[in-house]
């Protein structure tokens, strides 16, 4: 039995349903809804790559791309979720802005001024 039309129909159906998921990504009320939709789309992309490989008859070539894509999708989702969670937490009590921006200007305290001065000294060649 020739299954190639069936696989093409499956790929088209998956693409259509991914477009439906894209509605949630575009119109999601919050950022995290969009992340959820992107996670589902990314998981289904692995299936789509395998199907394309089967249709082309080169599954052994496409399978490595699938593996890399699955790993990448998981890491992307975790990183975005952690970033969002970090955003939700209250700001740390000591921002320490003077350390992040040494050229902040008049608000440099004694210790920070000392630190900025002592840095180039330490890097001098002996």
């Amino acid at each position: 039995m020739n299954l190639e039309p069936f696989f093409i129909a499956m790929a088209v159906a998956i693409l259509f349903l991914m477009l439906c998921n894209l509605y949630r990504v575009v119109a999601g009320p919050t950022v995290i809804d969009r992340m959820l939709g992107m996670n589902v789309i990314g998981t289904k992309t692995t299936v789509l790559i395998v199907l394309v490989g089967i249709i082309n008859g080169r599954v052994d070539l496409f399978i490595d791309i699938t593996l890399a894509y699955a790993l990448l999708n998981f890491i992307t989702t975790i990183a975005a979720a952690r970033f969002y969670q970090r955003l939700a937490q209250p700001a740390p009590p000591e921002p320490r802005e003077s350390l992040m921006a040494p050229s902040a200007g008049p608000e440099v305290t004694e210790a920070d001024a000392h630190a900025t001065v002592s840095d180039p000294v330490r890097e001098e060649p002996p």
């Binding site: 009320p29 919050t30 989702t77 939700a88």
Partner: peptide, 16 residues
């Protein structure tokens, strides 16, 4: 695990 990370972030953010 990804689902858990997403819903944990949403719970932390107190989404509607």
């Amino acid at each position: 695990t990804a689902t858990h990370a997403i819903i944990d972030a949403g719970y932390e953010f107190r989404v509607p």
